[in-house]
Amino acid sequence: MKQAQVPAVLESVLHEIPGIQITPKEGSRVRVDVAPGALPAILELLKGQLGFMHLSAISCIDWPQTDEFELVYTVWSHEQKMTVSAHVTIPRDPGEYVSVYDIHTPAGFFERDIHEMFGVRFDGSPNLRKFILTSWNGPPPMLKSFDTLAYVEETFQWVDYRPEWLRDIEAKGGGIDSEGEGAPS
């Protein structure tokens, strides 16, 4: 995979911001690591000067090793034909960040989704009510600390699978290894 140069136009706009790190990635994507405080300013700058109008996604990644959440803002410019993904890292406790809804309207949905799935609060987001998990009382399910298989085994029951041919095998001392790894209880 060929490593591209950092596009000059991006460097000329972003060089003034302190502590920023620009890395070219696959295709037309450029990764930008920023401090949490500088992100709204950078999104504003990219939108105003380079036409990064379109917010593709906000992705949240849980890193329990460092007790942090990583937020990735992926923006696309119709003018530059380029993707920038801006990475910020916020501490898991208290897990709060600012909303970018006033810069990019689609952020409303993504912030609502991240709030629901990870429990991150976004100050100034217009609507953080539950959307998908309205019947859910447990912890935010996308957290790494939430074990989905343990929850399933506690909540649901499996079909007792005992067909005829299996009974024959069991009569001879064989059968399904239900103690092995990953076997349903």
Binding site: S56, A57, S59, I61, T74, T105, P106, G108, F109, D113
Partner: peptide
Amino acid sequence: LGFFVVSNGGDKPWRVHVRGPSQMHAVQ
């Protein structure tokens, strides 16, 4: 349609985020 995939070097994805177009169209 976007797939944001993160790997930590393991045999399973660390995080997969699916950005579907309808997430915009069907809600806001």
